[in-house]
Design a protein around this nucleic acid. Structure first.
Lengths: 219, 219
DNA sequence: CGCGGTTTTGAACTAAGTCAAAAACCGTGG
DNA sequence: CCACGGTTTTTGACTTAGTTCAAAACCGCG
């Protein structure tokens, strides 16, 4: 996910531009509002999500320090197609759209890396499309948990290095709170995972992967 | 969708490289097989899809002449994450991966266009993710039909310029054949669309858009 | 004319969503 | 240290959208 890992560009940016702080629960930008720039996350966790109807939304992505978000505002129309909300207090460095576009025009290496990054994002998005359309809820939840461990690692005690509300986990798996809850219980009963408060840990990757799927690039 | 429209690159390619012909029903490349290159479609229609389980699959995209497909094989792993199957007899020009990558390395303008294209693809994929997760079937079918008209235009008699099997339409909307059928009946009864064999036409965009959604960039 | 593939319909079934209401948990301020 | 109010968590009962299965009817075509 770190397309820019070999790029010095980001460091330069981070040093030069102003950094902003956002507190838990704050909305950084909202679906439908004009896209003014992209953000480079220095600390904290952000969720990127899309909503539908009154109180439904689907979480597309959790961003962690060192990653970009808001780049979905680039492209043909300059409106954020997603909302970004702070899950854990964060600081981010804001890069105005013009500046970023200009940089892309000039820096071929960066453009290539950015392209590469998006190719992977696209693949992942399409994988999830299929999962949402064809896989059952249990499988999607299994995938969600595997993804979390992969992306946020696990601590010494085995629990995943990121604690989320069940509501958010459910919204990532594309299901309701209650259904999520029931499925998690089943997974616990089957000794596939263990849960303690907001902490999740995977006991049996094998079993979990049976529900989810092998060909997930994030696993 | 025509990211390359202003690029001369494609013409050069099409002139230089060999073109291949595929007949209806033929699989051009298959999910999981090594990605050898990308294709530039000259004639015909191709569906790009992902499968799951025995007999389920989700259609991600219909490609028409003048478009690329197979670029999803680019990126970190060089395995096609999708299958491409011919819907209407087609000819395509094959561009080996190495060559394409090399071109990207050299041609900055092309890279930028390609990036732009993918940003839009990503947005669209994420929009559809949300639709699959949160919208009901009727809405997704409405969207599918609107998308078809938008992308393939309508003929003089008002019918959409592409005829698909219901099976494929259902697979695009992420539902079963039978459900698709029933929903289409409802839409007909409500005078939102008209159907004649494989031909679909939209009678009331307004009504259709109510089920689907305004914020679809393809509409 | 008959055969293979669609289309159409009905009925049964089930996965998942919805609603509602305890129970547990948590910070915070007295 | 406890009580309080609000947010999560946990459960049960119910509803329903959508799938599945199975069997007609239909249609184009060799």
């Amino acid at each position: 996910m770190c397309w820019y890992s070999t790029s010095e560009w980001m460091e330069k940016i981070a040093a030069k531009k102003q950094t902003l702080a956002f507190k838990k629960g704050e909305v950084i930008f909202k679906e439908g509002s004009p896209a003014t720039g992209i953000y480079f996350l220095l600390e904290g966790i952000v969720k990127v999500h899309k909503h539908w109807g009154e109180n439904k939304d689907l979480i597309l992505h959790f961003s962690k320090p060192g990653e970009l978000f808001g780049y979905r505002g680039l492209g043909d129309d300059t409106i954020y197609p997603v909302t970004a909300t702070v899950l854990e207090h964060c600081t981010a460095c804001f890069v105005p759209m013009d500046f970023f576009n200009e940089t892309l025009r000039i820096n071929h290496e960066l453009t290539l890396q950015f392209l590469r990054f998006h190719l992977n994002e696209l693949k992942y998005a399409e994988l999830r499309m299929r999962n949402l359309a064809l896989m059952d809820v249990k499988g999607r939840i299994a995938d969600a948990i595997l993804m979390l461990e992969k992306r946020f690692g696990k601590r010494d005690d085995g629990f995943i290095g990121l604690q989320l509300k069940r509501q958010d986990l459910a919204a990532y798996a594309g299901t309701t709170y209650e259904t999520f809850f029931r499925m998690v219980n089943e997974l616990i009963k089957e000794d596939a995972i263990a849960v303690k408060g907001k902490q999740f840990s995977i006991l049996n990757h094998q079993k979990l992967a049976q529900y989810g799927r092998v060909d997930n690039p994030l696993l």
